[in-house]
Amino acid sequence: MQSKKAKSEAACRAFEGEVGDSTYGRAARRSAARPLARQREAETVVAARRLNRAAGMLAGSVLADSALEHYRGSFKNKAMFTPLIVAGLTLAMSIHGTADKRPDAHRARDGSYLLAAATGALGTGFHIYNVTKKVGGLSWQNVFYGAPLGAPMAILLSGLLGFCSERVRDNGGRRPHRVFNLPAGETIAAVTALGLLGTTGEAGLLHFRGAFHNPFMALPVTLPPIGAGLLARAALKGGARSRGLARWWMRLLTAMGFAGVGFHAYGVSRNMGGWRNWSQNILAGPPLPAPPSFTGLALAGLAALELMREARDA
């Protein structure tokens, strides 16, 4: 025969089971899940804002660089104003996205990022045409001194990374994040790695034209390819050690991009008249806005690594 205490405990357990299956119990479980969902949404927004910053850094570099280069070309083709307008719009949208803490994609940002990507693709075609129409066609001389073939790809990358940032933001609290129905971290890492290789090719071409007269000119053609390889390794292997090494290398590339502005400023000062003749030497010397493109891509790489970490921990 059961004791009064045993009967009381059995009654309590039965009551708890009924409550757990009741509407009240389900509401309690939903209330407990809400803080986790809000935390995941907040993490999603942080990841998207990192990509907005990366896209903005690239757009700012393109805006300043194309302004200088196209001014040097006297804007003889009215289409040369296009990258300035599009890069300026992309920079503004990236600043807006960096400040936006809502876990939803924004139509205006989406449109501007797609416009930037299309502008980069068309600009590449224009630059190839500019080189091939010169006497001698596609020759080293024309590649060295014609329109830079790889320059428009920077605004394409800015638009692509910005568009990816909106897709990440649209994931809300879902884990793992996906972009174009692919794992977000690995996809963005692949885009960043390819961008690093392309930017390295452009820097290598111009530094080769400068005969690598300063040993530091070798850094932009050696460090970024290693970073691209480390990103690819982190995406394929997915280990904490691989991600950690790639993360430190991305930080190194971030610093290299900013330091490159200083080296280019020194290169400008070595021209006749130095900074006293700045209006001519800025146009004739190494481009000051070009190195931060490495910083923008490194920031995208850091965002991709963080997305991969979150996916592994989900």
Rank of each mutant, 00 (worst) to 15 (best):
G296Q: 02
L288S: 07
I282H: 01
A290W: 09
G285M: 13
V261N: 05
R270D: 00
H264M: 07
S269I: 02
F263P: 00
L297Q: 11
W278E: 10
A290K: 01
R276W: 14
W278M: 14
M272N: 03
L283H: 15
N271D: 08
G285N: 04
N271I: 07
V268K: 10
P292I: 02
M272I: 11
A290P: 00
G285Y: 05
F263N: 06
L283W: 02
P286Y: 11
W275F: 15
W275M: 11
M272S: 13
G262P: 09
G274W: 10
R270N: 08
Q280L: 09
L299P: 02
F263V: 14
P286I: 10
L299N: 02
F263T: 11
P287N: 07
R270W: 03
N281Q: 01
L288R: 04
Q280C: 01
N277I: 01
A298R: 08
G285P: 12
Q280E: 13
P289L: 11
L297I: 05
S279V: 11
P291W: 05
G274R: 09
G262S: 04
A265P: 10
M272Q: 09
P291S: 10
P289F: 08
G274E: 04
G262W: 08
V261I: 15
P286C: 04
L288Q: 02
G296C: 00
W278Y: 15
H264P: 07
P286Q: 06
V268H: 05
R270S: 15
N277L: 00
L297A: 04
R270A: 11
G296S: 08
F263Q: 09
L299I: 15
P286W: 07
R276T: 03
F294L: 14
R270Y: 03
I282P: 04
Q280V: 13
F294S: 04
G285W: 08
P292M: 02
G267F: 05
A259K: 00
T295A: 14
N277W: 04
A259S: 12
G273D: 05
F263W: 13
V261A: 03
M272E: 14
Y266E: 11
A265F: 13
L297Y: 13
G274Q: 02
S293P: 00
W278V: 14
S279P: 00
M272R: 14
F263L: 15
G260W: 01
P286K: 09
G260D: 04
